[in-house]
Amino acid sequence: MTAAGFGRALDLVTRVRGVRGAMLVSAADGLVVADQLMEGIKGPAVAALAGSLASRLGRAMTAAGVGESVFWHLQGSGGALLVVPAASGILVVAVAEPEVNVGLVRLELLRAAEAVA
């Protein structure tokens, strides 16, 4: 996929109101593949931490017998991190305001994941 293709996939997510940035992250490395972030959001930190949390959560979910993760959502008092793992080993990540429409972000993350898979 080209850089323009990645950009179009991220557009799907960033156009949702309350989303402050979207990224594609290499799940194994925790490195940024592509991003569209508002100023002040540290892309490399988001990528590294989302990758690490995804990997730890994945192990817990497998042990619990609920299978691989399709979507996860870390809620904080001041914001949220929403992630959909794509088939290609890429994580599609959104950083959002706490009041964001989670259902809508989830749908757009799933669409973006399909596009980059």
């Binding site: 992250v25 290499s26 194994a28 490395d29 925790g30 490195l31 490399p44 930190a45 990528a47 590294a48 931490l49 990758g51 690490s52 990997s55």
Partner: peptide, 12 residues
């Protein structure tokens, strides 16, 4: 160990 860390975390 790639199971517990990543190049992204190390760089960060």
């Amino acid at each position: 160990d790639v199971d517990v860390s990543s190049v992204g975390l190390v760089q960060l």
